[in-house]
Every structure is written in C-alpha cells, then in structure tokens.
Write a protein that binds this DNA or RNA. Structure first.
Length: 853
RNA sequence: GCGGGUGUGGCGGAACUGGUAGACGCGCUAGGUUUAGGUCCUAGUGGCCGCAAGGCCGUGGGGGUUCGAGUCCCUUCGCCCGCACCA
C-alpha cells in the first residue's frame, strides 16, 4: 500500500510556493485588503510549540482569506533586542549580535519548514540599524512633542554585578547571578508620557469590538481611572501640609490615621534624623518594586510621631504612619485611613490599636446595632457619626463633603489613574541606543537628525560587570554638537516594548527611507487581525495603542487603533523539570524503571514541577523540529489545531500526534485509491441525485457551511471535527454508479479545499491528484448550496417535568397541536405521567416538548 | 493581595441566544484482514443497577432562580495569565 511521504511532498510544495511567489504581497489596487499578523517572536534559539500554535493559527486565517479572494499582507520578523542575548554573551562568551543572528537563521529555517504563507521579502529584525534608526527618529519627534521626558525612578540594583536587574532576576531579594542583596536605587530614566493619553486609551476600548471582552476589561482596570479628591491635612507644628488622594471623602469623619509611602518625600525628610525610621524604610525597600510583592506582604507601619489635623475638626489628631502598603506612584503617595470602611485600613488599625469608628451604616441595619468587627463595610448606606453628613447616602455625602472642602479651600476634586508613565530606559547594551547626549555645558542634547543613526558599537566586552556601553573606551565620549564641549552619549537603550510598539507599521513599508510611508500605511493599516499570546493582553497592546496616538501627534500615522481584531490565544503548557543544577529540557529527562523521572545522561533523580506556560527560562519546551521531522508540518499543524479552541491553554502531550498522522494518511488514500471511481473532472452534476448520493451531497454542502462558519469565528477545533466527519462519510460511501462517482468527486474536492488552510502541503498534493493546476489558493473558496443545506425533519425531545423520556422525529415546523398529541401518546410519556394531572405543556418549536405534571 | 480567565467520561474537548450532555479525536476492549509487527477494516466504550426492556445518577463543591441549568445568580475550592525591567 502506497504511503503519503510528508517530507518529500512538503519540500516540493514549499519550493513551488517560493518559486512562484505565491505569497508575495499584492500591490493594492482596489480589492479588499486583509492584514493578518501574528506577534513576532523573540529569537531565543529555536521555535517551540507556542510558536507552532500561534503561527499555525495565523496561517490558517491568512490562507483562508487569500482563498476568499482578499489582498492579504502576512509578514514576519524578529523582536531581536533583549536581555537573553546579553546573558548568552556573559554565560557563553558569544557576542549578542552573533547569537541573535544565528538564532534568527535557525528559527527562520524552522518556520519555513512549517509551510507558513509569509511574504519573507518584508522580513524585519529590530536589532538591525535599518529598523532601529527610525525608532531613534521617532524618539526625537516624541521629545519635541514633550511626550518623552526624564525622571528619577527606582530600580533594582545589584551592587556586586553593578547592574540593574529585571524583576524576574530578583529572587527572594537577591540578584540571580551574584546572590547579592538587591538595593533600590534612584536613577534618572527616560519616560514616555502615556498618562497624557489615559482617557483616550480608555475611550478607545469600546470601539475595539473585535477584541475579547476580557482583554478590554484588563486594560480598563490597568488604566484604573478613579475620580476623587485631593485633600490637604495640616501637620501639627509644621507650616506645610500633607496632600492625600481619596475616593471615599464621605468617610472622612471615620478617619483614624494617615499613612504615607516609604519613598514619600516627607518620609525621607523625617528619616534623615530618625535612624529607626530610616531603617524601617530600608526594610520596606527590600520587598522590591513589584506590586504583587508589596500587596502580599504583611501590612506594617511606622509611627513617625508626626500628627495630621482632621480637615473638618482640627481638634482631632491623626497619627501619620509610614506604611508599606501605600504606593508612591499612585495618587499622592499618601492616604487617610478609615478602618470602618476599608479592609486594609481595618487590618492596619487592629494591628496598631487605632480607633474604628463606623460612619456608614448599612440600610438594612439599625445604627445602634451596627458594629464593625473584622470585616470593613464597603457598601452603600446612610452616614452616621459624621456631623453635617449624617443621614446622607454615600453619594450625597461625597458631594456634600466635596463642596465643604472646596469652600474651605482644603481640597479639590481630582481624577487619578493607576496607569503610570512608561519607563523606557534600560541600562543594557543589546537595545536601541537612545539618541541623546549629555553635554557638560548644555545638559541634555538630542543627537542632530543628520547624525542618525546612533549605531550600537560592536566592539564591546562582557567580562566586567555593568553596562558595556558605560565602559566603552571611545563610543561613549563625544563633543557636543551645539557648543563643542566634552559630552557623553546616553548609554541607556530602549525597552524592547518600544521596538514592538510600531513594527507592524514598518511591515507595510519595510524599505522606506522615512520611518513610515503614508501611502503604504493607508493601504494596509490597521492590522485587521492580530494573533498572539494572552500574556501580552496589557503591556504590549497598551503600549502599541499609545504609540500609535503619539505617532499620530507627530504626523507619522493617521489612525489611532493599531489592531482591529485580536485573537488572544492561550498558552502551551508543559511540566517543568529540574535538578540541583537548575532547569532541564523534557528531552533531557526519561522515565526510569520504577516510573519516576530521571536524567537521561546519568539517571539522577529529577524534580517534576507543575505545568506552566512553555518558556525558555524554565526549559519546559518541546522541540517542534523533531515533531516536524518525524511526522511532517501538516501533521503538527493539524494536531495543534485539533483539540482545544485557540483561546484556551493547552497541555502539550505526545499522545494524539500519531492519530493526526493517521488521518493524513487516510485522507491521502481517499484520493490515491478511491473506493468509488471518480467522475471526470468537468463532468456535470446530474440533476436527479437521490438516495445515499443525495445524503453525501447534503453532507458536503453542510460541511462547507459549517467549516466556513467555524473558521470565520476561529473555532478551528470544530472545523477539524467537521472535516473528519465529512471524511468519514466519504470513506463509508459505496454508491459506485455514475451519480455516485460525480457526487464523491464533489465531496473530495470540497474536503481538500476545506482542509487546505490547515494542511496546506497535502492539500496542494491532493488537489493536483484530482486533476487541478496548483496552487489550490488560486481557486475560490467553495460556497454551500443553500437548497441542499435545508433540513426536512428534526428530532424533538419529549420531556416530563424536564426529564427526557423519548424523542420524536417531526417535519420542520410541524403543527404544534399534532406534535403535542403525538408526544402524549408515547408509551414512555404515559408511563411517566402515571395518571397525574397535566398542569401545562411547554413547546419550543423544533426543539422540545415538556409535559409538566 | 488585586485584576482577568478557567474547571464537562480514563484523556483532549463539543453543546449556537437556558431546551436530547459527551460531537470529533486519543486511549481502551472485542472481532476481522494481511503481515513478524505499531498498518488497515468493523463493533463497543460516562457511572451504577438489570439477562433484557429499561431505570437511577452525572458538567470542581454547596446553595438558588426556572417547566427545564454545563449555560443565569450567590458562595466556595483548584488551576492558568498579568501586576509595569522576561519577551
């Protein structure tokens, strides 16, 4: 029996597609365009299953849209700057540039072996000066538009490695490489003014109706707009005051303390002559910079001895604490605590023995009976213990309190955001140089545009701790272009999120001399469908949305929203393995005789960790090249599409890949050795198709309708199931008369076209075997015959008290009265009713008849 | 901790807007073909009771709304993603 040879056939069609430029981006004339984009990969070394998943998803959409006759732009590139390249340099002594470009070469080859429909002529790599020089131009534009500025901000400093650490490099407060205790250090940083667009970014969300609701909600919460008040509390014995932000000024009479952030200027000032406080602040900073760590930590405070006076009653004195749960970068970095109506404040008050005075009484509760014990009341109610606010609702009390505070000049309404400005400085080598310099005389000077690009020097060493740009003997030192005085280059490079905030625009005009070409942008942008991991739901997508608005302000683009549709695909997860020396790849591990996992090389025991999203840092990745080498790309693609819907996380397992492979063999045999002889290619369809042939025809056209619908809605797992059903139907078809031959040809041709976007190589091969000229993509997507889809009968469930008793086969839209009597005559129905009175009968036409007794 | 998800047979999952739970596949069981075989074909496969007809139970746990709940509401548990310097 002949077998389908995936290796040979896949190579054949990949060569054909290349030589005939099947995936060249069409020049836009007047046809409808479709820009399909998957998030570009970081060139970490080799592709992993997460890549296979996302690029397969995108490719199915791209090929389907092309078959629908749209002008498709489907590009690919590399998010090529970033930390791992520098780690490789330190650990393996390879230059980041070489490491990155080698990885790109490997991964490009691997992606090509998947048979993805990219226009490779538009490939970009962010580490190439061809790309990053334009980013430097745009930065100068942002600087002129006052959307970029410099500000001190706190970073994780490793005093031994002399370097800034990413949060993930800080483990239990220590540097991952040096093990040194990490310090918080203030460094001047370049920032992007994303907060200037907070409202616009918020307002844009409802227009993104082709995004998942969950992502929009996450962004909304991330921006975190809240309307409240800034209130000034006088400080006893001082001339200045403490400004706090609150959204609950209605509970002001319930205040029992104030708290400021450990890095609040006032805290620093008080600490200068209070060593204990200085020590406390120091301890707070040990927690690091991540919000999760701060929020999870025990709530602790330090009594500064300072006293704030209640704005409505200056006789009431409130202790000012420094507290670890108050964040400097939210609001004003200072709060008043109302333990009765805020859980965190309540926990804090109980811990430090502070008053708990309830000021909002629930509507359902008498004032005398309302007490707060260990649960703060945050709902609506009426005000109590609050002088002029007594009796008011929360909302009315807020207005009244606000009015009084404004009147007495003690506060003002204020809107604050959780969103902070975007820190884009990185004290690292492998990134886009920030094109400014620091002159002894003039201060910060932008690099003149005619001197761009500022190229990253290649001759750097990684043998000393710290940023190699900082230590470079010549690159760093320069003369000021304005005054000629000695100056140094900015040695910070950009956060790689900057690179990925506009790459999708550059694909439209990869060779333009300016950053972006208006004509090309208007032709292709925005991206119609973006596909990528849900882990990017907030930062990357929000930064890109901001960047488009910033670019619009600078005249580079004419639209706001970069991505019309978003498919946020779930993670590919896998168990993690480790031993004393660190993480292990799954292929370094094998089951021992006892069943426990051991190292393949020395049989040493392995710790099996829980399943997590595949990531290079934890080595819990499966090598797709092995899978593709063994089974072929089509099988890998089919497998990855088959079971789970795209949005869901999938657990990688080897089981099932054999099944996918068998299905491919089966499909191929159906055309290679058809059970029923196939009619000639152009033979007309007889007009008296009936019996089993009619059944197959109907099934074929229903499959067209269902699969089309499923692909449109990205339910590829269902589309695969539907294709399998059609294949099963064809395989069981035995009618070998003239009519059957014609119908089975139609069914097979349909099958091949429907599976084409998912299994493109074997589909091209089968299409050719059916007598057609390649490429299958040049043939229009099949359309269902509506007359054949319509059904004549339906199966209706018959229930008694909601429990299924039997089913009836009825004509569609059958007479309800007749259906009712037929149902009541059913023996199983009669038996279930057992002579009881029928109270009512609910009939849902074509679905259910429910007898209630 | 906060925000967003998610939970259905032995396994991955299906079930459109509240209307026959388990499509499709993996695995497993039995039979058959050819073969030395992992190939291929046929049948079966949620659990319990029953010779059978059939019955009862069943969508993480508990409660509720409804003629009817996997689907809606409340509550609770597990897991996943994000939390601003991983990408």
């Amino acid at each position: 029996m002949a077998r389908y040879n995936a290796q040979e056939t896949e190579k054949k069609w990949q060569t054909f597609w290349d030589e005939n430029a099947i995936f060249a981006t069409p020049a836009r004339c007047n046809d409808e365009k479709y820009y399909i984009l998957e998030m570009f990969p970081y060139p970490s070394g080799r592709i992993h299953m997460g890549h296979v998943r996302v690029y397969t998803l995108g490719d199915v959409i791209a090929r389907y849209k092309k078959a629908q006759g749209l002008d498709v732009l489907h590009p690919m590139g590399w998010d090529a700057f970033g930390m791992p390249a520098e780690n490789a340099a330190i650990e393996q002594g390879v230059h980041p540039s070489k490491w990155t470009w080698d990885n790109i070469a490997t991964m490009r080859r691997q992606l090509r072996s998947m048979g993805l429909s990219y226009d490779w002529s538009r490939e970009i790599a962010t580490c190439s000066p061809d790309y990053y020089q334009h980013e430097q131009t745009m930065f100068l534009d942002l600087l002129e538009a006052d959307l970029a500025y410099r500000k001190e901000s706190s970073v994780n400093w490793d005093p031994v490695d002399n370097t800034v650490l990413a949060n993930e490099q800080v483990i239990d407060g220590r540097g991952w490489r040096s093990g040194a205790l990490v310090e918080q250090r203030l460094l001047p940083q370049w920032m992007f003014r994303i907060t200037a667009y907070a409202d616009e970014l918020l307002e844009g969300l409802p227009t993104l109706d082709q995004w998942p609701e969950s992502v929009r909600t996450m962004q909304e919460n991330w921006i975190g707009r809240s309307e409240g008040m800034q209130i000034n509390f006088s400080l006893k014995g001082r001339d200045d005051h403490l400004t706090i932000f609150t959204t609950r000024h209605d509970t002001l009479f319930g205040a029992s303390f104030c708290a400021i952030a450990p890095d609040h200027p006032l805290a620093k000032e008080l600490a200068s002559n209070n060593p204990k406080l200085a020590n406390f602040i120091d301890e707070c900073s040990q927690l690091g910079t991540t919000e999760a760590a701060l929020e999870k930590a025990d709530k602790v405070g330090f009594d500064t001895g300072l006293v704030a006076l209640h704005p409505f009653n200056r006789k009431r004195e409130l202790i000012v604490f420094v507290a670890n749960f108050v964040l400097m970068n939210y609001g004003t970095g200072a709060i008043f605590g109302c333990p009765g109506h805020d859980q965190r404040d309540l926990d804090f008050a109980r811990k430090y023995g502070l008053d708990v005075l309830p000021v909002v009484c629930p509507h359902s509760c008498a004032e005398s009976e309302f007490i707060v014990t260990d649960k703060a009341f945050t709902g609506d109610g009426r005000l109590i213990n609050s002088e002029f606010l007594n009796g008011l609702s929360v909302k009315d009390a807020q207005s009244a309190a606000a009015e009084r505070l404004v009147q007495e000049n003690q506060g003002a309404t204020h809107t604050t955001y959780r969103l902070r400005d975007w820190a884009v400085s990185r004290q690292r080598y492998w990134g886009c140089p920030i094109p400014v310099l620091h002159c002894q005389e003039c201060g910060i000077v932008p690099v003149p545009r005619n001197e761009l690009p500022v190229l990253l020097p290649e001759d750097v060493e990684f043998d000393k701790p710290g940023n190699p740009l900082e230590l470079h003997p010549t690159w760093k030192f320069i003369r000021c272009p304005r005054c000629g005085s000695p100056a140094v280059r900015e040695t910070d490079t950009f956060d790689t999120f900057v690179d990925s905030s506009w790459y999708f625009c550059r694909y439209a005009c990869p060779d333009a001399e300016t950053p972006l070409d208006a004509h090309a942008l208007n032709a292709w942008l925005p991206v119609d469908q973006y596909v990528g991991g849900i882990e990017h739901a907030i930062l990357h997508l929000l930064y890109s949305r901001f960047f488009m608005r910033a670019m619009r302000a600078c005249g580079h683009v004419e639209f706001d929203e970069p991505f019309t549709g978003l498919l946020a695909q779930g993670m590919v997860c896998h168990e993690t393995y480790s031993d004393a020396k660190g993480w292990l790849f799954p292929e370094e591990v094998e089951p021992s005789q006892g069943g426990a996992l051991v190292r393949r090389d020395n049989q040493a025991p392995v710790i099996v960790g829980r399943s997590e999203s595949m990531s290079k840092s934890k080595k819990n990745v499966v090598d797709p090249e092995t899978i593709i080498g063994t089974y072929g790309a089509d099988t890998a693609r089919l497998f990855i599409l088959s079971d789970s819907p795209p949005e869901r996380d999938i657990e990688w397992s080897e089981s099932g890949i054999d099944g996918a492979s068998r299905f491919l063999q089966r499909l191929w045999r159906m055309v290679n050795e058809p059970r029923v002889p196939l009619a000639a290619k152009d033979a007309p369809m007889p007009n008296n198709v009936e019996g089993p042939s009619l059944v197959l025809r109907r099934e074929t056209h229903r499959a067209i309708s269902d699969v089309t619908n499923d692909i449109e809605k990205f339910r590829f797992n269902r589309a695969v199931a539907r294709i399998r059903e059609l294949a099963n139907m064809i395989a069981g078809f035995e009618c070998d008369d003239e009519c059957g031959s014609r119908v089975v040809r139609e069914a097979l041709e349909t099958l091949v076209q429907l599976m084409g976007p998912m299994m493109p190589h074997i589909a091209e091969e089968m299409w050719q075997m059916l007598g057609y000229e390649p490429s299958i993509l040049n043939y229009p997507w099949p359309k269902p015959d509506v007359g054949l889809i319509a059904t004549e009968t339906v199966t209706v469930a018959v229930q008694v008290n909601g429990k299924l008793r039997t089913t009836l086969t009825l004509r569609v839209d059958a007479d309800q009265g007749a259906a009712k009597s037929q149902a009541l005559a059913e023996p199983s129905v009669v038996a279930s009713i057992r002579g009881r009175d029928i109270r009512k009968i609910i009939i849902v036409p074509n679905r259910v008849i429910n007898v209630v007794v």
